[in-house]
């Protein structure tokens, strides 16, 4: 009896590994990266303050990449998310001068609205999502530049002097819980994934494709609002370039985390977590290890290749390649 049980268990673990290889391999890459920097920084990487740094620097990417899973699961991309983060931060900054309490809802609302417009362009005007978001990116960047007068704009002093780390942590946890549950434990996530695999088959199985595409873009919009607001508190200023790197970083994080850029069955929240951790640990660890200047770029690039090659130790999509 025992033996049979063991066998079943073994089989389960085996299949667990077999069908999650794309998610386990990146974790391995992350672990190796941490070990590498823990050694080269002589343990500094694992100090509490370093971990706090990684958290401080990594949370915007975590927020955006988690939301990005929603869009990428359907096989779309949101090129405007980075610009949206900066735009929401600027709006929040302006609103904060008027009323600091309204800054947060203003950021969320702005983000959601931008996401909604993105999705409406895609769903009803039939503009390819890629183009729609790219145009939105240009518009937001320009708007942001005008609003900040081309330079940077400091938040009201009272926002700067308060310590918002608890608020941030709470908001972040609530956000993560909600976004993970919706994606993995409700029909929304499962239907998004289905859309990424086959829009046709999904529609024939009762998936409301239009509604879900809209939902996915609103989610990235809201995430941009949240990230924008929290980044504003963190850096204490709005600027035209705030958050602009988050678009590419989110895509890279997800791909590093084991998700296919075409979305579908490989979509998972864990990809966003692993991927954004890899990116942040790499950026932070390299300084802690004392690698600076020209060598920094070089080593960063090379480490990136290694992590990617470990992360992609999975069956390739085509048998002949």
């Amino acid at each position: 009896m025992m033996v049979v049980n063991m066998d079943i268990k073994k089989g389960r673990i085996q299949s667990l590994f077999q069908y999650n290889k794309s998610k386990i391999a990146p974790l391995l890459g992350l672990v190796l990266l941490v070990v590498f920097f823990a050694i080269t920084s002589k343990g500094k990487l694992l100090e509490a303050s370093s971990i706090e740094n990684i958290y401080n620097q990594g949370f915007p990417l975590l927020i955006t990449s988690l939301a990005f899973v929603y869009v990428m699961a359907t096989g779309n991309l949101d090129f405007s998310i980075g610009a949206n983060v900066g735009f929401c931060a600027t709006i929040a900054c302006y609103v904060a001068f008027f009323n600091t309490k309204l800054a947060f809802p203003a950021a969320l609302l702005t983000g959601a609205l931008v996401g909604l417009i993105n999705s409406l362009m895609y769903v009803f005007l039939k503009i390819p999502s890629f183009i729609a978001c790219l145009c939105m990116m240009f518009i937001l960047t320009a708007a942001n530049q005008t609003l900040t007068g081309g330079g940077s704009k400091m938040v009201p002093v009272e926002l700067l002097q308060n310590d918002y780390s608890i608020v941030r942590l709470v908001l972040l946890l609530i956000y993560i819980i909600i976004i993970v549950i919706i994606f993995h434990k409700t029909k929304v996530g499962k239907q998004l994934e289905a859309l990424g695999i086959s829009v046709e088959a999904s529609i024939q199985t009762g998936v409301n494709a239009k509604l879900l595409f809209i939902v996915s873009y609103v989610v990235t919009g809201v995430a941009a609002g949240l990230a924008g607001y929290l980044m504003l508190l963190r850096v204490g200023a709005a600027s035209p370039t705030l958050g602009s790197s988050l678009t590419i970083d989110s895509i890279i994080a997800l791909v590093l985390g084991g998700m296919s850029i075409l979305g579908g069955a490989s979509s998972s929240m864990i990809c966003a977590v692993t991927g954004s951790l890899i990116t942040t640990v790499l950026n932070s660890g390299i300084v802690l290890a004392g690698m600076g200047g020209d060598a920094q770029q070089l080593i960063k690039g090379a480490l990136f290749i290694i992590v990617v090659s470990i992360s992609t130790l999975r069956e390739s999509s085509s048998k002949n390649f």
Partner: peptide, 12 residues
């Protein structure tokens, strides 16, 4: 292409 999500699991 229309009745199945090929790359999804049997379960899904």
């Amino acid at each position: 292409s229309e009745s199945l999500l090929l790359s999804a699991s049997i379960k899904n």
